[in-house]
Simulated assay, not measured.
Amino acid sequence: MLTISLTIGQYCMFYIWVVFCEKKIMGSEENDNKLYKITTTQQAIASCCGAIITSLLVTPLDVVKIRLQAQSNSFSNGKYFIYSNGLMDHVYVCENGNNKAWYKKPGHFRGMLDAFMKIIKIEGIKSLWSGLPPTLIMALPGTVIYFTSYDQLSEILRSKLGKDSNHIPVLAGSISRLGSLTVVSPLELIRTKMQSRQLSYKQLHICINNTVAKDGWLSLWRGWSPTALRDVPFSAMYWYNYERFKNRLCKRFDAHEPTFMISFTSGAAAGSIAATVTLPFDVVKTRKQTELWEYETLNISQKRSASTWTVMKRIFAEHGFTGLFAGIVPRLIKVAPACAIMISSYEYGKSFFRKLNKQKNMQSYLFSSNRD
Rank of each mutant, 00 (worst) to 15 (best):
Y346L: 06
T182P: 01
L128C: 05
L2D: 14
G216Q: 02
L68D: 12
Q359Y: 13
N77R: 14
W309P: 09
G216V: 00
I156Y: 11
L87V: 04
A51Q: 11
S301F: 00
A317E: 15
L187W: 06
W129A: 00
H108W: 08
S159P: 02
K303R: 08
P233C: 00
A340Y: 07
N210I: 03
M112I: 12
F281Q: 04
D89R: 15
V58A: 07
T278I: 03
V212G: 00
P233M: 01
R158F: 05
A51F: 12
G323H: 14
P106Y: 08
I315P: 08
S74F: 09
D231S: 09
I175G: 00
R314I: 08
K251R: 08
F352W: 14
A336H: 07
R158E: 15
G173T: 03
Y11D: 09
T322C: 07
W224K: 02
P169L: 00
S225C: 02
K358P: 12
E243C: 03
S130I: 03
F253M: 00
W217M: 08
F281R: 03
S55D: 05
S154H: 01
R158S: 09
V283E: 09
T39S: 15
G131V: 13
R248N: 12
V64E: 02
N85I: 04
A340S: 14
L356C: 12
P133R: 00
K160I: 09
S263A: 11
Y80Q: 10
S130P: 06
L140G: 08
L332T: 10
V232E: 03
C207N: 11
S235N: 13
S305E: 14
Y150I: 02
F116Q: 06
N73L: 06
W309T: 12
A228L: 06
I38S: 15
F321P: 00
P226K: 01
D32T: 15
F147C: 03
